[in-house]
Structure formats: C-alpha cells, structure tokens
Amino acid sequence: MSETIRRMKDLPSTHLLGTGTPMCSGCGGLEALHQIYDVLGENTVFVNAAGCMTLLSVYPFTPFRGSWLYTAMGSAPAGAQGVRDALDILLQQGRLPPEDDLQVVVLTGDGSAYGMGMSATSGAMDRDLDFIYICYDNEGYGNTGQQYSSATPHGATTATSCGSRGYPGYKKDLFSVWSAHRPSYVATVIGSEPLDLAKKIEKARDMTGPRMIIALSPCPTGWDYDPKDSVDIGKLAVKTGVWPLKEYENGVVTHTRVPRDRPPVEEYLQRQGRFAHLFRPERNEELLAEIQDRVDHYWEEVV
C-alpha cells in the first residue's frame, strides 16, 4: 500500500489478516491489529510476547502472511534485535534482495509493555533498534484471566483487585516513559478511530528507528461488557478524554484529537462491569470525582 491515507474512503476494504483466530468475539485488540496490518503490509515479521495474541499463531494455523516468532513476556524487543540483525547480515551478504527486506514488528500486551518487558524495550530504544513496537493495551493480564497490570486504571476490578475500591494503583504513563527515550516516534491509537490509527501507522511505517505504538484495546472479557459495545466503548474512551490520541516526534508531543465538550467520564465507566462497584449498590462519589479530576487535570495541561 503506497497511496497516502487521508480520508475514511482511503481505508482498505479487504483485509490481510486471516479470519479464524481464537481471539474473543468483539476483541478490540484484534480490531486494531487488523487495521494496523492492512497498513504495514505483508513484508513484516511479528515478534510476539506471551499474551492473548500469542494464540493468533497456534501451530499449524496463522492469520499472518509472513513470519511470526514467539518470545517470553519480558523479551520481545530482544527477539526483535536478533531478527533485525539477521536480516541486516543477509542484506549485507547479498543473500536477501533489498526489496525482500522485512519490517520487524514487536507485538505485546500491556503486561509486557508496561511491566515485564520495560527493560528490554528501554535497551532496544537505547540501541536505536529499527523496529515497530505495538502494544495492545487491554489494561490487564487478559490471557490468564485479567489480573491487574501496571496499565490497569485506578478503581477497576480485576481478578486480583476485587474489593469495593477496585485496583488501588494508577495506570502508568507509558507514552511519557517511552517518549523520554527520544525514539523516532511514539503514538497512541485505538481501533474505534481507524483514520487516526491508519495515519499514524502509515507515518511509523515510513520512518526508521524505534517506532512505538500503544493501542487501547477494549476487551469484552476482561472489562466485562457485551462484545457488541466494543466500538462504542472505544469511542467513549476518546470522547471523555480517558484515552488521549497523541504522537511524539522530534521532542514534541502533539494531540491529534482534542475532545471538546468532554462528556463525564462516568459515561465511559458505567458501560463496563469492571467499574460497576462505583455505581452500585450506591454511587462512590469520592472515587468518581477523583477519576474525573485526573482526566480534567490532564486536559488543562494540554490546552
């Protein structure tokens, strides 16, 4: 794909990612991945840390059209380094024609990206590794039954934070942590905003160096809502200001969407069972206000 994506009409209407995957029905992560794959194209090799998406390629089936490599949760970027080095050596020795070169793409969940894989990712950015990192962020350890991760939002119920106040910690600001390494590119995306996503992935595709993408991934199973609501919930995450769409380049952070007239965050929260305890048996005004204040504060700093 080489034409530039400017309008909705430019988005692909046939898709590269194979059907028949074991992801849950209505998986927001899969929605983002299939949109991303359409833009990146077939000349990609995926390096995938343990998580829901490692089940995409369960022998003998794969939805990808190229190679895929499984790594331990903490070491996908290290795996990517090995693959990149091997490709570079083959290119150098003339054993791989330049047109057959592959884009190395790390694919991990938030458990890896925000937690276990941080050090390997930091090292890869230090070495200016030429790769794309895609974190599909479903805000917990989805594959093992949604235990909390450092991407879990404050107050959410997870398998390991089930009291009346939910998860006591705060979602780590991975965008800032990654940007502080000054890689080529960092962006947040979401499958429910496909045009914004496609433009960013296209930009990343045409750059070199570390290109880091975080895709918020509404997860019917882990967030406890009906699969049909995946897109609605994703759109609400953006509208209410919970998930800012932004990019980092050359030391500058730009918001690609500044939501005006943000509806209350409640509208996003009450659609998900993981926040039900904030509303029933009675409203937890204090916690709701705290969550809203944090979002308001974020946007006050932006504009």
């Binding site: 590269l16 990612l17 194979g18 059907t19 028949g20 995957t21 074991p22 077939e42 995409l56 003998p60 089936f61 794969t62 939805p63 990808f64 059209r65 190229g66």
Partner: peptide, 8 residues
Amino acid sequence: AAANSVQV
C-alpha cells in the same frame, strides 16, 4: 501457508 487460519 499464508493466513491459513481461515481453515478454522
């Protein structure tokens, strides 16, 4: 085989 998950 590319994208052979379609067999599932």
